[in-house]
C-alpha cells in the first residue's frame, strides 16, 4: 500500500513536539523555572543576610538590605501586574463565536497550565515561606511589621500568587467561550478567596501589635488566612467544568491515529 501525501502530513504532525494541544508547554515550563529561581533566590538572600542585617529594624543596614528589597518588590509587582494583565486583556480573542474545537481544546490545556503556575506560587506562599515565618519569628524579635521573612512572604509571595490567579481568570474570561459567556463561580472562588489572605495581613499585623509579638501559629489571629485558603477547593469545580467541556469537544473531534 502506497503512502499518500495526506498520510505523510499526519505522520509528520504526530512526531512534532510539542503537539498542537501543548503549544504552550515550553512557556509553561519556563514559568516554573523562572519562579523557582526567584523563590530560591529569596531564600538564599535570607540565608546570607537575615541574621547579619535583619534582626534589628533600627539598624542602618536593615534599611539597605531589607527596606530597599521591599521597595524593589513593590515596583516589580506593580509593573508585572500591569504588563501581565494588560497583555492578556489587549490580546483577547474578539471572535470567540468562531472558535475551532481544536483551538478550544488547546486553550483548555493552556488554562490548566495557568492555574498550575498559580498553584505553584500558592505552594511557595502557603507552604514554604509561611512555615518559615514561624521559624524566623521564634528567633527574631518583631520590632517591625516588615521582618526579614514578611518582606518576602507578604509583599512578594502573596501579591505574586494573586496576580497569577488573576492571569488564569483573565485567560479563561478572554479566550474560552463558556468562561466569556458566564462568570465561572468556582474559578472566581479559587482566585478571590486566596486574595482575601492578603487582606488578612492587615488583621494579622494589627493583632500582633496589640496582643502579642510572639509567634503562635494556632492562635485565632491567623484564622483569617485559613478561611481564605479554603476557597482553593474551588479548583474541584474548575476541574469538573473543564472535564465536561473537554469530553464534549473530544467526542466531536474526528478520530486521528
Amino acid at each position: 500500500m502506497a503512502t499518500t501525501t495526506e498520510q505523510v502530513k499526519v505522520m509528520t504532525n504526530q512526531n512534532k513536539f510539542p503537539p498542537w494541544y501543548l503549544k504552550d508547554l515550553y512557556r509553561y515550563l519556563s514559568a516554573f523555572a523562572v519562579l523557582t529561581v526567584i523563590y530560591m533566590g529569596f531564600r538564599i538572600y535570607q540565608g546570607a543576610f537575615a541574621v547579619s542585617t535583619g534582626l534589628d529594624s533600627t539598624e542602618p543596614a536593615f534599611d539597605v538590605y531589607w527596606m530597599r528589597l521591599l521597595n524593589f518588590e513593590l515596583v516589580f509587582i506593580t509593573l508585572f501586574t500591569s504588563i501581565a494583565w494588560g497583555w492578556l486583556w489587549f490580546t483577547r480573542d474578539k471572535n470567540l463565536d468562531k472558535l475551532e474545537p481544536k483551538e478550544e481544546i488547546r486553550r483548555y490545556l493552556t488554562l490548566t497550565m495557568w492555574i498550575s503556575v498559580y498553584t505553584f506560587a500558592v505552594y511557595w506562599a502557603g507552604s514554604y515561606f509561611a512555615e518559615q515565618d514561624n521559624s524566623w519569628h521564634q528567633v527574631a524579635i518583631r520590632d517591625t511589621p516588615f521582618t526579614a521573612n514578611h518582606i518576602i512572604e507578604f509583599y512578594f509571595n502573596f501579591p505574586m500568587y494573586i496576580i497569577l490567579g488573576g492571569c488564569a481568570w483573565l485567560y479563561a474570561r478572554t479566550r474560552l467561550p463558556l468562561y466569556a459567556n458566564g462568570i465561572s463561580l468556582p474559578l472566581t472562588l479559587a482566585v478571590v478567596g486566596p486574595f482575601m489572605i492578603l487582606v488578612s495581613v492587615g488583621f494579622n499585623e494589627w493583632g500582633h501589635t496589640f496582643w502579642f509579638r510572639e509567634e503562635f501559629f494556632a492562635a485565632p489571629i491567623h484564622w483569617g488566612f485559613v478561611i481564605g485558603v479554603w476557597f482553593a477547593h474551588g479548583v474541584g469545580g474548575i476541574l469538573l467544568q473543564g472535564v465536561t467541556r473537554l469530553i464534549e469537544l473530544l467526542d466531536g473531534l474526528e478520530e486521528a491515529a
Partner: peptide, 30 residues
C-alpha cells in the same frame, strides 16, 4: 490529549494541596 490533561491536572493538584492544606494545617494545629 486526555493523558496530557491528566498530567497537567496532577502537577496542579500537587502544588495546590501542598500550598493550601499546609497553610490550613499550620495555622490551626501547626
Amino acid at each position: 490529549i486526555a493523558r496530557a490533561y491528566d498530567y497537567l491536572v496532577l502537577v496542579l493538584a500537587l502544588f495546590l494541596f501542598i500550598g493550601s492544606f499546609h497553610l490550613h494545617f499550620a495555622l490551626t494545629v501547626g
